[in-house]
Design a protein around this nucleic acid. Structure first.
Lengths: 143, 143
DNA sequence: GTAGGAGCTAGAGTCGGCTCTAGGTCAAGT
DNA sequence: ACTTGACCTAGAGCCGACTCTAGCTCCTAC
């Protein structure tokens, strides 16, 4: 049986979390199953643990708060029979992420516009002809 | 001269920030120009202030930290002549936002995949035929 | 045998970004 | 006269998510 068995440091390395964060997540009840320990009391992670942590990292990266991840973890831990609940939670999160992307995209438009404005100002300035009344950079009463 | 003059409460309402947050931003040096006061010492905002705050809200919403917003504010306050700097800062932020959207999109893919998995499980379950060995929901060692 | 490095626990500290409190002023309405 | 409500300041408090520290145990290599 080729069960690997990874140390916390190795898991940290491949998930991108710090060892501190991994222990913290465990304390917070965010690991789906209790981490095994070796004879010396050190954590030994399996591939499935790594996969789970990786999922958690993705959920965090997309803005899911730890309490929600814990909820989801609890559902999974409770086992089969609550798939509707899990689905609902995932769908809700998906909508939030979609909304977030939408908002960021709108922000990006404005930022892009601003970038364009400054590019124009600089192009014009570099062109050599004096700009007597520069097109009010930010607002009408700067400084 | 149709200068409006808004109270802090009105600005809060139309920018979405709280009055607390508005005062906090001011203390943090994030308002481009000093807010005027009425005879009683109360803040009076002009349309330009509201526009500036609105820009700040967009920058915040797209993840720019307050210190960076303050930097930008400082540049604007210093007046003409540092347009390259402003442009650089905005471009940098634009790239970060783009990256963030990319990351969220990748997360969304995974979440969508998970949603699909659960939809399949539930469809199959609702179909009536017993699922003897359900396709391992989360990982091989749940609970 | 001893120095280094990785791991352990419990608990304290940090950081960003607000949010709230206490204690007060002021103007308008009843 | 008095209550209400919006505003003021200075400063404390809070929340989320880590991050770090102290003081310890192992194991390995020199």
């Amino acid at each position: 049986m080729g069960t690997t068995g990874l140390s916390i440091g190795q898991v940290a390395e491949r998930t991108g979390l710090s060892v501190h964060a991994l222990r913290f997540y465990e304390r917070e009840g965010i690991l789906a199953n209790p981490v095994r320990r070796d004879s010396g009391g050190r954590r030994v992670y399996g591939e499935d643990d790594v996969e789970w942590v990786t999922l958690c990292v993705v959920l965090r990266a997309s803005g899911m708060p730890l309490p929600a991840i814990r909820q989801y973890t609890d559902m999974v831990r409770r086992g089969d029979g609550n798939e509707e609940e899990r689905l609902a939670l995932l769908r809700q999160h998906r909508e939030r992420v979609t909304a977030q992307i939408g908002q960021l995209t709108r922000c990006l438009d404005l930022i892009g516009y601003k970038v364009g404005v400054y590019e124009d100002i600089l192009d014009r300035g570099a062109g050599g002809h004096e700009c007597v009344a520069p097109p009010a950079p930010e607002n009408g009463r700067p400084v």
